[in-house]
Simulated assay, not measured.
Amino acid sequence: MNDILSGAAMGAALTVAGVYAPDVILTQFNFTDFTMLQTFLTAAAGSSLIVTASQTLGLTSLPPRRPASLGFLSKYDGNIFGGALLGAGMAVSGACPGTVLAQLGVGVTSGRWALAGGLLAGVAWSWISSWSSSSSSGCSQEGNRDQKAADEKAGDGDGLGKGGDKSRPAETVHEAFGVNRAVALVGLEAVLILVIATVAKLTTSGASVARGITPYAGGLAIAASQLVSILLRRSLIGTSTAFEELGGWVWGAKKYTNVLFSAGVVSGAWAISQAVPALRPVTEASISPVRSLLGGFMIVFGARVAGGCTSGHGISGLSLLSISSFLTAAAIFGAGGITGLLLE
């Protein structure tokens, strides 16, 4: 029940913020409206403070999100490639693994096709994961299962390193720069506030003006859903693992934890949109079923390659000051922006 309630808080927050709407995502990536970016940065700033407080008070003890390596270029090549594929898919479909669930709850037509593409990606990725695991030794498989159980506490899975291991390479910003976490957090908050203020001064956020809800209020609502998740289940928000879990059902692997959280996202978005009809989109972005299906596959497959999505890496991972999450977020927005301009 706690997973469902936590998901419902996130679904309601995404709906209130308006960033679930395909047009808000598409206009961000063609640089005509910056509602999404301002909301995202505000959510990251608020979530970082909440997660730091929870770690300090002992409510959570979450290590940084570990690198996602494909073994080709560097230990972060999976974060960069997967993040880029996710960002490009967002510009194609107007959705991400979290917002597509809110779209389903609110009743956005293109979201249904994007969800179908995401489910196909989940089936494909779960098969790849099971094949990869079967190629490992029994001891390695046991270790992978133990690590994955810890990973899922951070929301998206496949993104946590080993906490307190002095021998491992730096996986957080403060480790990389040789400063304590408090200093790094103050620096992050300062940078986020500066960027938010600059974006607000130099760009437009017409989508938020039309809805009567500022990006800052929307971002804080998403940060508040992070707090709900911490209090109810001692875990951070993240959604893309649910698609892998659902895909695994095809191959006989029955897991439900992240599926329940994601079901909560759908129900929370539905409930708030029913209670406040003004939160529903007046018009829908014109996205063809084929484009939505393709983009849906890209966002989920990319998220699983990167070990997390816009919420798992972009909100939760940044809050843990994980290097992998900063690189993933940069790849998402960079590739999404390039793709958005090419599609214009």
Rank of each mutant, 00 (worst) to 15 (best):
I4H: 04
G7D: 05
G18M: 03
V19H: 03
L26Y: 03
N30A: 13
T32M: 11
T35V: 12
Q55Y: 12
S61C: 12
L62D: 03
R65I: 14
R66A: 15
A68G: 05
F72K: 12
I80R: 00
F81I: 11
G83H: 00
L86V: 11
L86S: 12
A88C: 07
A88T: 01
M90S: 01
S93M: 00
P97F: 03
G98H: 03
V100H: 04
L101T: 08
V106I: 10
S110T: 03
R112F: 15
S132I: 07
S133H: 14
S137C: 08
Q147H: 06
A150T: 14
E152R: 15
G155Q: 08
G161P: 15
R168A: 15
A170S: 12
A182F: 06
L185F: 01
A190Y: 07
V195P: 09
A197S: 14
S208I: 11
A210D: 03
A217L: 08
L236W: 07
T241Y: 10
G247C: 07
G252E: 02
K255H: 15
N258D: 15
V259H: 12
A263E: 03
V265Y: 01
A269W: 05
V276H: 11
L279H: 04
V282C: 07
S286E: 06
V290H: 09
F297E: 12
G302S: 09
T310N: 01
G317I: 06
L320E: 09
A329S: 13
A330W: 01
F333M: 04
A335L: 02
G340Q: 05
